[in-house]
Design a protein around this nucleic acid. Structure first.
Lengths: 111, 111
DNA sequence: TTGATGTATCAACAAACGTTGATATATTTC
DNA sequence: GAAATATATCAACGTTTGTTGATACATCAA
């Protein structure tokens, strides 16, 4: 039972997902790998802008890339998305005995 | 089959989850609702800092609050976490026919 | 070798974000 | 009433983030 989150890693993952351009990129990559120029066309984004977002995704482990000649192809790393999935589950409220719901709060600021 | 993401909503959700303090708050709330002063004690965070983060979480729909006298109690909104879960699934690569993997790219910048 | 092409990186900037300390507002207690 | 308490909000500030345009670096084509 995973009780404690890796806060830094989780925040990094969620941050990488917290931008519309990056989500649009991932949405495109669902159908298979794409080279940067294809993303550029489809998303109508400047080249350096795309490059920036791809780097954020890559550093978070959400995508991997492959170079072929002068083209770079990016694809989704399914394991990373599985981590996101697992995090969402890990944050769900515990189903636990009602008695344990409110822990003893020694500070005593509230009833 | 949900093909297109609500980018703005998704980005908002993920952004709310992209901060360590906010993740620590949610982790505490898994065990049931807590008042702000309890979170303050447990997370050793300034009051206005906590208030700020709770507002971000609330605006993203990840928590709900309840006032009782001078205390505010916050709790997780499980539906929102289910949305996060669903998003992680929706972003997974499609399992599709190999033939469809690479779409026709009319721009013709790459092979 | 030269020129074109695809991509990464950089510097500069504006906008968004998170922290802090001060103040405001409501509620309870005396 | 007045003082104390829990929380929210605000202004100010430094930091991080995302955008743009310029440049660098490969690779390919002629």
């Amino acid at each position: 039972m995973a009780t404690t989150l890796d806060l830094a890693r989780s925040a990094q993952l969620f941050h990488a997902l917290s931008d519309e351009t990056r989500l649009a990129i991932l949405e495109m990559l669902r159908d298979g790998e794409r080279c940067v120029c294809e993303l550029q066309d489809a998303l109508d984004a400047a080249q350096s802008r795309l490059s920036f977002h791809l780097r954020v995704l890559k550093e978070a482990g959400l995508v991997e890339d492959r170079r072929e000649g002068r083209w770079s192809y990016y694809r989704i790393t399914p394991e990373a998305l599985r981590d996101v999935h697992d995090l969402a589950v890990a944050l769900q409220p515990r189903r636990t005995h009602a008695a344990a719901q409110r822990s003893a709060h020694s500070g005593g600021c509230c009833p």
